[in-house]
Amino acid sequence: MPDFFDAYFAQQIINGLSLGLVYALVAIGFTLIFGILNVVNFAHGEIYTVGAFAGLLLIVGAAPPLLAVVLFAMAVGAAAGVGLERLAFRPIRRFSDEASLKSRAMREATLLSSLAVSIVTRELMVHFFSGEMQVIPQAALLQEVIAVGPLTLTNGNLFIFGASVVMLGGLQFMLYRTRVGLSIRAVSNNVLGARHVGIDTNRTIVATFAIGSALGAAAGILVGLYNGNIFPYMGFAPGVKAFVAMVMGGLSSIPGAVISALLLGVSESVATDFISAGWKDMIAYGLLVVTLIFFPQGLFGHGRERV
């Protein structure tokens, strides 16, 4: 096998891992919220878009260092997540006993209310920014090429790697070593038990939305700068991919979602060798269907292990 093929293949794997890490950041938000409320948050893709736009506005306004842009996007994302919870989730959560918090009625109602918030948010962005791609200042783009032997990486690859690993590590630390994290896991595991030990479940749910949304927003701005395009509809595809990763991972397992997201990213990247780019979204749907048929509990599922 010629040398260049291996290098090319390695290149695709690296690109796939970057893509997968981004899916993972988005999937974590889905997974955390599903874990705690048993609902799918349809507006999560818009949080990603909001993060990208927030970052862009800051870049255009102040041209700060990249880290500040990401932190700002995360802060705006967290605030948007809190607002989303207030608007689409809390009003429907009228009773807070264990039966109604995760009830089917609640699930169906929030499906629609989060979808509504998602549509309104997207259309508002179209209204204010138009549906077109935004021009990103050249200096802010993460497309600077860095050659490592036969591989061509960009600083975007490296930044996505670094930032994602830090965020995933931080999340794990938060979930296992802090009181907020313990509370999130406790509410996910047993709401009634959580209330009996004195956890403020509403506050914990808000914290979950803030954290999940901050990660989703970070993914949005990272991808925006890496791909060089930011537009109101950009959240849809990664939202779908992250959703698939969550299902593949067993719905409420964070490690499961992260591994599935990486698998999905790499499959998409490698598959573009064999199929045309326009068909690459089929990979996600294909994996989803295969998972649902052969592994209804997810690829790693004992099923009910949450967060």
């Binding site: 009181r179 406790a186 047993n190 009634l192 038990g193 959580a194 009996h196 030990v197 956890i199 009910r304």
Partner: peptide, 28 residues
């Protein structure tokens, strides 16, 4: 504090984490 009906422990979390959660309302 209450030890409720059906125990309502956090089954997927460790015994230590369960106890830590019991103390979540008091100063660390």
């Amino acid at each position: 504090a209450q030890a409720p009906e059906g125990r309502q422990i956090f089954g997927t979390m460790t015994v230590r984490e369960n106890l830590q959660l019991g103390g979540i309302a008091i100063p660390p």
